[in-house]
Amino acid sequence: MDEEYDVIVLGTGLTECILSGIMSVNGKKVLHMDRNPYYGGESSSITPLEELYKRFQLLEGPPESMGRGRDWNVDLIPKFLMANGQLVKMLLYTEVTRYLDFKVVEGSFVYKGGKIYKVPSTETEALASNLMGMFEKRRFRKFLVFVANFDENDPKTFEGVDPQTTSMRDVYRKFDLGQDVIDFTGHALALYRTDDYLDQPCLETVNRIKLYSESLARYGKSPYLYPLYGLGELPQGFARLSAIYGGTYMLNKPVDDIIMENGKVVGVKSEGEVARCKQLICDPSYIPDRVRKAGQVIRIICILSHPIKNTNDANSCQIIIPQNQVNRKSDIYVCMISYAHNVAAQGKYIAIASTTVETTDPEKEVEPALELLEPIDQKFVAISDLYEPIDDGCESQVFCSCSYDATTHFETTCNDIKDIYKRMAGTAFDFENMKRKQNDVFGEAEQ
């Protein structure tokens, strides 16, 4: 370990593993360490099931009705991949897709007046949907046509809207959309967690709705994908990429100290040895004095023996409960997957309800979601602090990732990755940087 590296990475969460992969592909010498004996950090999948019970201090362990412990891979952080989103792009560019198998999530649902409705995925579904009345549908269709044709580089498509100054509230007004449709559009399509976006320039919202539609167009059922064997497969896929390009991995490796000289990182000390480096990437748990708390998320993992009611017996789905429907500031989400994804025993389902904490009784906040899941065989409640770095790391060369937020997709995580890359490399992130180099010394032969 007593060696000189360009970059040392602490923690094998998804953000850290993707950055480690990119740095290795770009010719950097990388050492990647984790104090845990497993990959994934906060974003790991726990197996066998006995391990999950232990982690949540349920000492009696799983009953026999849960089947074989080894058949379970339970995500600690519930997220899906947008089919046309940035993480899929990263997987394709790096060819990490060859280590993973994905399934399309069967449906996306939205909560309205105590019931759940399928988010329409085709024009026919939209016309048949009970989510809105006849005239509302016509106006909504006009709005969707506007979004589909919108091109930020072609003012002819703006229809009198200025993407940089017109607020989204004004765009909704222009198409005369009612409150329910606005809730549905902002939260189930643009996937905002709160209503803060309404008074911001509309460009980002329009682009988010386009991303949803384009992702949906790829597979038809929903815009989301999920990897077989759980999300823990993602960091491992990128760790393989890093290793192929010469990255060194050490799990179960305690970090005793991060060594600084004149305010700059110069190395990491572990078990009496020092590895030197020019730059350091880590998750917040490794540098508690360089991060601040930015809120909390509650996630309740529920094991069920039945599909969720009114989802047409889907073996995977997402449910969004827009905040307006339950008098909150932030949406509540449910991600459900099952034995069909090799993450649970035969006939079992895993539904994870999550939201940003707003009160001193977080469990009560998630109740509307839990009511949709009854009866629940077993619950595991996790309340996590969200951390963000206190500075950009440019001076110390210590670059810290943000905690995983309450969103049900990876777009915010990818933004964090691109942002850290830019601060480390001094140049904007470009997907081309992730391409495997042809015929290089570490390149794998085609399968």
Rank of each mutant, 00 (worst) to 15 (best):
L241T: 01
L370T: 14
E4Y: 13
V25T: 05
R436W: 15
M336K: 05
T356I: 07
G61R: 12
S316K: 05
E152A: 02
Y39D: 01
S270E: 05
K418P: 03
P254T: 02
D71P: 07
D405C: 13
D440S: 09
G40R: 00
L228S: 02
T427L: 14
E51D: 07
E16D: 02
I420T: 07
P37H: 02
R138S: 06
S121P: 09
R240M: 00
T311P: 03
D283E: 00
G107E: 15
D101A: 08
N310H: 12
R436G: 03
T94K: 00
I18N: 01
G186I: 12
D6K: 04
D195S: 15
H306Q: 04
Y219C: 09
V104D: 14
S222T: 04
N26R: 03
V7E: 07
I258R: 02
T412K: 00
I8G: 01
I244S: 02
E60M: 14
K269Y: 05
C402I: 13
L59P: 11
K364H: 14
I300T: 12
C282W: 05
T408E: 14
I116K: 07
G114V: 04
A406P: 10
D419Y: 01
Q397G: 00
D416Y: 03
G160V: 04
S403C: 02
N310Q: 06
G267M: 02
I209W: 03
D154S: 14
D257R: 15
A243L: 07
L372N: 02
L241W: 01
P78S: 13
M82K: 00
C302G: 11
V334T: 03
M66A: 01
G107D: 04
T124P: 04
E136L: 09
P223Q: 00
G267S: 05
S20Y: 12
H341L: 09
S242F: 05
P235F: 15
R55P: 13
L304I: 01
E50G: 11
T356A: 10
D377C: 07
F380M: 02
F146N: 15
V119R: 05
L127S: 05
D391A: 14
T248L: 11
S20W: 05
F429W: 10
I390V: 10
R138C: 00
T124A: 09
Y219G: 15
N415K: 06
E60W: 12
K422N: 09
E4G: 08
Q179H: 07
G40V: 02
D154V: 12
V255A: 06
V147M: 03
E273Y: 14
E214V: 08
A351R: 01
K28V: 13
K137V: 07
C17T: 04
N433L: 15
I332M: 05
M168N: 14
G393E: 11
L87P: 02
R240T: 03
T122N: 11
Y117F: 13
G160C: 08
I8A: 08
K364R: 10
C302S: 12
Q279E: 01
R436P: 06
L211W: 07
P288H: 05
V171G: 06
Q236K: 00
R276H: 08
Q200H: 05
C414V: 15
G67C: 09
G11C: 04
A148V: 05
D289C: 05
K54N: 08
F380Y: 06
F410L: 10
E3Q: 01
A148E: 00
E159D: 08
D195A: 09
E214Y: 09
